[in-house]
Design a binder for these strands. Structure first.
Lengths: 339, 339
DNA sequence: TTGTATGCGTTATCAT
DNA sequence: ATGATAACGCATACAA
């Protein structure tokens, strides 16, 4: 495969390199005749412009930087976020962009997100999950670079997140109206996560709004994001003499531990206690009992984030809302039983 | 943040741009004095060389292209491969490389893997999962670019895979020696996957070697990679009057469907039939009954693939074996019961 | 409408 | 040991 660039092509086509560049970029004036002639030739010989040269010259790289904080320590293994990322990826790739994971290490150099982005000339940044203690993120969203997130909500950052408030409201309504229960407890997730915080706040808010009795003993706290934390939290719940009738758990991952703890202690779900999770990760339907849960629409989340970011990149003038709320949907399975 | 490049630095340091380049690349002769002086200044002002310019000049981009075939239609959501990728990612990032997903679309152009790689000047390619029908992959491994895979095994392609043969042997030995059962059936996965093919072959080989009776009715075929296929296959198995005593399932994902089917038909696992999976995906321990399975070491797989690829990149002369086999380990849980 | 020249930030070859 | 200079492949302002 012999090398080809606009110069070699120019020679072969007997035009100037500049003209080729113009048709490549749809810029400047060039006659329809030469345009199609060039285009056809390019197609025929399979020429593709070298990105590095392009990047060097212009400021765009057709690349989107991805921040996927690994504080959860599982990164791509996270069943919820990796799915959202997958949908984001599919969408932007279809629009001709590609993804590049932002690392704070470039070759042997260590740099901030912002530096990395400037160095790589990314067109935008997608924060799949981020850490609020991360000063690098503040610096980044203070810059000119478009940033969108499906996790953090922060001033100056465009967020696309599930409507947690409304979701929790629905869960409580369902518990009262369909399950016919009023004693609703909660397994609260780590509050450093905005989503978990919102869910907890909504729980308190609507328990009050609906005049449901809040029993502090029926509220337990998961220390982490996973199975083990759910198991532990449930153990604390089991320390009480009475159980709530319905248990709302902040996330499915935590729910897995909850279910296992109940099972190990011969507590029958849903007959002794009903459990409602949040997320609808794939496993939710495979566990026993299968888990009733509030589905977050991972596809819509990823795609909306993608659309939002691309719009910010390509039409910098159009205003986009700071927060875009995505609807959730209750998926009814075996862990609840309608009265 | 004012722009900086080797010229501005050169001016400020009162040396020539060339000298700076030399210390940056540890090349050519430069006195220890100026070297440290330059290094310190660079550190102080936080200068980082522009990758695009570097790429334009040299052929390396410190980037590894990733092929993650989405034929399974879940991409990053795949619990096994995304985990292997995660470990690969962590390793290479630590070595100063970064990952970039290979797409067959660059901007508005459509190109082959090879073209994309040459255009991006990737240093190597990692095939997480690939498709054997993909002609682009053949072209790629026929090229000069180092390629490694944790899925496909193909001539000219370095593969890092689990030792399926030995794994299946262990499963059968365990069934006979610990479970004390001889009637061992199998749920066979789609044979377009090399791994599934190897597992099936090993099953037949060692059933014979151990003089165990093969009952064709106890061998059923899953049409796909997921839950549903496992469920369906199990239905076929249930059509027979007698069940095997132990059922070896080609993968955990398929096993989930198998377990559910048994549960729906009131077949008690492990008392009526024992089930052994393959992979040890995270869910395996959360389902009921929790799944005995042959663990694939995703961390070792990812890291070994990373090491292999980096070694090919950085020391092109050293020979690496075509296939590196990784040990697996049997994880005993509730779906089997030792006699 | 088309061609020419210059710069983007490096690396590498050659002088000095 | 250090400095000057020519590529690398493209975009673009300007000239023709």
């Amino acid at each position: 495969m012999k090398k080809q660039n606009i110069y070699t092509l120019a020679k072969e086509l007997d035009v100037s390199p500049g003209t080729i560049s113009k048709v490549l970029n749809n810029t400047g004036k060039v006659s329809e005749a030469t345009r199609t002639r060039i285009l056809e030739y390019i197609e025929k010989v399979g020429y593709v412009p070298t990105m590095s040269a392009r990047m060097l010259k212009s400021k765009s790289s057709k690349t989107i930087g991805v921040i996927f904080s690994e504080e959860l320590n599982i990164g791509l293994e996270h069943p919820f976020f990796s799915s959202v990322l997958q949908h984001f990826k599919t969408y932007v790739e279809n629009e001709g962009y590609e993804l590049s994971f932002i690392v704070t290490k470039l070759g042997k150099n260590r740099l901030s997100y912002l530096k990395w982005c400037m160095n790589k000339k990314v067109d935008g940044v997608y924060i799949v999950v981020g850490n609020y203690n991360d000063k690098g993120i503040e610096e980044l969203i203070g810059s000119e670079i478009p940033v969108v997130s499906t996790d953090m909500v922060l001033k100056g950052l465009k967020a696309v997140v599930s409507d947690n408030d409304h979701a929790v409201k629905s869960i409580l309504e369902y518990s009262v109206q369909k399950l016919n229960k009023k004693k609703i407890g909660m397994v609260v997730g780590p509050q450093q996560s905005k989503a978990f915080e919102q869910r907890f706040n909504a729980y308190k808010k609507y328990m009050n709004a609906f005049n449901l009795p809040i029993n502090e003993k029926h509220i337990v706290y998961a220390q982490g994001f996973g199975f083990t934390s759910g198991y532990q939290a449930t153990l604390n719940l089991l320390g009480n003499e009475d159980l709530p009738e319905v248990l709302f758990v902040s996330s499915d991952e935590i729910s897995l531990g909850v279910l296992k703890a109940f099972q190990d202690h011969k507590i029958d779900v849903p007959n002794q206690i009903q459990v409602i999770g949040f997320d609808d990760i794939p496993v939710a339907r495979y566990v026993t009992p299968s888990l009733t849960t509030m589905m977050q629409d991972r596809k819509i989340l990823g795609e909306t984030a993608a659309k939002t970011l691309l719009s910010m990149i390509e039409n910098p003038d159009t205003e986009v809302p700071d927060v875009t709320l995505i609807d959730t949907k209750l998926i009814k399975r075996e862990s609840t039983k309608e009265a």
